[in-house]
Design a protein around this nucleic acid. Structure first.
Length: 150
DNA sequence: GCCAACGTTGGC
DNA sequence: GCCAACGTTGGC
């Protein structure tokens, strides 16, 4: 059982969208390191859903992996903003996973709060210039987030 | 393989 | 909207 953090711009896809849809495809990841982390995800793993770019920036809730990595269909779709002309059905480049809504935090656990809590000093998301959209989370960090968020 | 140019992310 | 910190591309 592993823990992950995945970033989304809430104007594009938010924890409320996930709550409404119950199960959602997490697509559009176009970074190899992030993709490789997605490939390491197992059914039942826990995901911290992180809202980027729009205040309040931070962890908005929790989801669970219900389908492991499979070729992201948006890479083949010329009309999609995430279309990749170098990807083919035979040699796909990018993967998606499916997640299930678990919990929305009463309020977003903000990046500011994470940065001000010494427990999170080594958490990747609190590091300056951390752009990786899919990150592993330690159990220690997850437990602390859970405690503060719920 | 180097690295400049370019594109993107994401906090602020 | 700004811009630092990246990641990617492509000429050489």
């Amino acid at each position: 059982m592993a823990f992950w953090l995945m970033k989304t711009e809430p104007s594009y896809f938010s924890i409320d969208d996930l709550k409404r849809q119950k199960i959602s495809m997490w697509d559009g990841v176009r970074n190899y390191q992030a993709r490789n982390f997605m490939r390491a995800m197992k059914k039942g793993d826990t995901v911290l859903v992180y809202h980027s770019n729009k205040a309040p920036v931070g962890i908005a809730g929790i989801a669970e992996i219900v389908r492991v990595a499979y070729p992201d269909p948006t890479q083949f779709d010329v009309a999609n903003e995430h279309h990749d002309k170098k990807a083919t059905l035979e040699t796909p480049r990018w993967d998606a996973v499916n997640i299930r809504f678990v919990k929305k935090f009463k309020q977003v656990l903000t990046l500011h709060e994470l940065k001000n809590d010494p427990h999170f000093e080594t958490m990747p998301v609190t590091q300056k210039g951390s752009r990786l959209s899919v990150q592993p989370v330690s159990e220690h960090h997850f437990k602390r987030v859970y405690k503060l968020g719920t």
